[in-house]
Design a binder for these strands. Structure first.
Lengths: 368, 368
DNA sequence: CTGTTAGCGCATTCAT
DNA sequence: ATGAATGCGCTAACAG
């Protein structure tokens, strides 16, 4: 009869007729153990179905083989995709991922950091606010490595992965301008976010270049179709209504699409539309929606790799200490579909993934 | 100067001039401690910034305050939404959630169970296969509570939350039949899944009732727009092509939608379409897509509650031992839009959430 | 009400 | 190449 409780290391030692140290050596690589003993111990381990107790290991100062992931929402397709690749990479390193969602509430964010920092080896975080002092400080003082993604952390030297929001927003706006639209309305919520600010900045830059007056509406409320429709209605009722709309994120673009449809406005004939962030079915709508497409999976992959890289360094030789611009910037690309006025292009669904070679790292951006 | 290392319980004890037990009592509720001592200890805790070491607690047999979530994919909107609510509820119980994705690979699923079972208090799992013997057995032998969702576990007495797939599929098929369609094609991949089988069963039942010949195509390949288009092309090329299509899951419905559009077939005039599982923008497409809508968040909420209920029981009085049908069955509802031929109904987006009172538990289903 | 003490399971000196 | 002994930080008997 086997034991009722989980077999421990000393159970194995007893069974194999060796000391606990030897067993410990075996389960940690089997160095400095004779082939014969090794076989005996492995046999005992198999017989008893022994699995090392993680808590005991962690208590001894070992890695917990767990990383934390903090995101505003896991239901958001963008973060869900990130989480998926991150999880995959973590598994490659024998680690699990614990997911915390913050709903963009700074308090919850800090709370999550507290509960994570004592039990994970490192943290991947999509910060709600790039410049929040409490957030930046807390993360900087953590004894475990942290990598940010989606939004950078401005005030501390924490590596991160973002996309060139400024650039791509400017490109998209330029594209709309090339269509001849002059009054382009830029709308979207969460305007306090670094990501959003960058996009607004890119939009504004393009408008200025073209000697057009930037029209930005980042009222706090773009949470539902109704709210967005109400905002739009106001703009459309003006004497010089916008000729095109640039939605700062995918949900805003979707809500705008729905509103325009409800208003009976033909897109792009009566009003054009473009958005930032691709979304499923963007190419199935009629008209299909032109968007800036971020390399979602790349973001997740690279952020996770950065984290495990640090984890590896920590245990071995000291890190390269490449201080300074440790923020990696990936390239988004314009996916031109029909809503901007380009006529039906060939369908480009979200499922047709990003070309690997279309991306790269831009260490420094002369335009910013 | 404070200590370099994290302050421990005995650091606090020293600082407060009390024993370690007292500190332990304080951080565990503060019972049987005088108000004065309590204040002193709390003061010391605050001064030192002490946080209990979880690993040590777990080593002593305490809860890890972590639950495991095993899903086929976290990028799938259905599971992502589930995960979001589950995470929320877990937080209410002071627990974190570690997410494992299996890609529907049984081997990975078992592997994930192994790595989780030693470090979490309980497991929420959306099984890839309801009847897999290794899976059922392993889960049944776990020393921690398990709750399944989406798919039930057939062979063991493990509680679970599912929806009435049979019923709703039958209802949807009946609806299509009422439109006068006779040749209704039922398509979709992953037909080995219990969920899918139930839907096929519901479809078949409705067809039989109406003396129509069931047309089921659950070829293994419905992974991309192209594959689905190829499958459809074959069916449409026949002498008596289908008049309506019932997609067994949301991605299948979406792919079918895209294919029909590519073929230039007008929906629903030339061919009708309905799907199982709602999806974002289903109501924004033209025509909007009629679907069976599952109460996603309810599924997640109830599954999580069931788990924590067991966790609570385990610590206190023994569980009610209500063996037998511990599978909860929630009601899906038909969301009739335009693709079935009903003309433009009022828009019903996914964002307009389920009515709470529209759901319930069906302990036993006389029709099955 | 409070303190002393003994492990939880493991990795790790330091011996041999 | 191997083992005995020690302690990681905490909780729970068991005294007082």
């Amino acid at each position: 009869m086997t034991l009722r409780r989980q077999p421990t290391l000393s159970d194995v030692a007893l069974r194999a007729g060796v000391g606990t140290t030897t067993v410990s050596r075996v389960i940690n690589g089997g160095d400095r153990v004779s082939a014969k003993t090794l076989a005996a111990v492995n046999h005992a381990i198999a017989e008893l179905g022994f699995v090392p107790n993680l808590a005991a290991r962690v208590l001894k100062g070992e890695r917990s083989k767990t990383i934390g992931l903090i995101v505003p929402s896991i239901a958001d397709p963008f973060f869900a995709s990130c989480a998926e690749v991150m999880q995959k990479i973590a598994r490659g390193f024998g680690s699990l991922v614990v997911v915390c969602v913050t709903g963009n509430e700074p308090a919850l964010e800090l709370e999550n950091i507290e509960s994570l920092c004592r039990r994970v080896d490192g943290i991947l975080i999509a910060p709600s606010q790039s410049s929040s002092a409490p957030l930046n400080n807390r993360l900087a003082n953590l004894s475990i490595p942290v990598v940010s993604f989606d939004q950078p952390l401005n005030k501390v030297d924490i590596p991160g992965v973002v996309t060139n929001n400024f650039h791509s927003a400017r490109e998209m706006t330029r594209h709309l301008l090339e269509h001849g639209y002059e009054r382009i309305l830029c709308i979207g919520g969460e305007a306090n976010f670094h990501t959003m600010l960058e996009r607004v900045r890119g939009y504004t830059a393009a408008m200025r270049e073209a000697n057009q007056f930037p029209l930005v509406d980042t009222a706090p409320r773009f949470r539902s179709d109704e709210e967005t429709a109400a905002v739009l209605a106001r703009h459309l009722a003006g004497r010089r209504p916008p000729q095109a709309i640039y939605g700062l994120k995918n949900t805003t673009a979707i809500q705008t699409y729905n509103a325009l449809q409800r208003f009976g406005l033909r897109v792009p004939q009566e009003i054009a539309l473009a958005g930032h962030d691709d979304f499923l079915l963007a190419s199935s709508l009629r008209p299909s929606v032109t968007v800036v497409q971020q390399p979602v999976e790349e973001i997740g992959r690279i952020a996770a790799r950065l984290l495990f890289e640090q984890l590896a360094n920590k245990a071995g030789e000291p890190p390269p200490e490449r201080r300074g611009s440790r923020i990696m910037k990936l390239q988004s690309k314009l996916v031109i579909r029909a809503s901007c006025g380009c006529g039906e292009a060939e369908p480009t669904g979200m499922l047709s993934n990003f070309r690997r070679d279309a991306q790269g790292t831009v260490p420094r951006d002369p335009d910013e």
